[in-house]
Simulated scan of single mutants.
Amino acid sequence: MAVFACADCGAVLTAPVSLVALPAHAHQKYGNGVLLPVLLESGTYVVDPEPSGPPWRLWEEVGAQEAAARGVHAPVYGLSYGPPGAVGVAPGDVRGTVLIPERCGGHCCGLDGGDGPNLACAQCGRAVAIRVDDCSLWQVVWLDPHAVRAVCVDEPARRVLSWEELREQQQEISPIQPTGMWSPVWEAAVSVALAHLLAASGGARVVVPDGCVADVFRLATDILLPPGSSAKSLALAGPGLSAATADIALVPRHPQTGEAWPTDAGAAVPLAADVWMYLASTRDRQFIPATGGLPDGVYRDDPPPLLPFRRFQPDPDVFLHTLARLPEVRQPWLREIYDRVRDRRYIRPF
Rank of each mutant, 00 (worst) to 15 (best):
G113C: 02
D115K: 07
D115S: 14
D115I: 03
G116E: 04
G116I: 00
P117F: 11
N118F: 03
L119V: 03
A120I: 08
A120P: 05
A122D: 14
G125D: 05
R126I: 13
R126N: 12
R126T: 13
A127F: 13
V128A: 10
V128T: 08
A129C: 05
A129P: 00
R131E: 09
V132Y: 09
V132K: 14
V132A: 12
L137R: 11
W138G: 03
W138N: 13
Q139E: 12
L143V: 02
L143P: 01
P145V: 10
R149D: 01
R149Q: 12
A150F: 00
A150C: 07
C152F: 08
E155C: 04
A157C: 00
A157E: 15
R158G: 14
V160P: 05
L161V: 01
E164L: 06
L166I: 04
L166R: 07
R167F: 12
E168N: 06
E168M: 07
Q169A: 06
Q169G: 03
Q170E: 09
Q171I: 07
Q171A: 10
E172N: 07
E172T: 04
I173R: 12
S174P: 01
P175K: 07
I176V: 08
Q177K: 05
P178D: 14
P178H: 10
T179Q: 10
T179W: 05
G180P: 05
M181R: 12
W182Q: 04
S183L: 00
P184H: 05
P184N: 13
W186Q: 04
E187S: 13
E187M: 10
E187W: 01
E187C: 10
A189N: 10
A189S: 11
A193Q: 02
A193D: 10
L194G: 06
H196G: 02
L198Y: 07
A199E: 14
A199R: 08
A200F: 02
S201D: 15
S201A: 14
G202T: 05
G203C: 12
G203D: 15
A204C: 15
V207Y: 01
V207H: 09
P209K: 09
D210G: 07
D210Y: 04
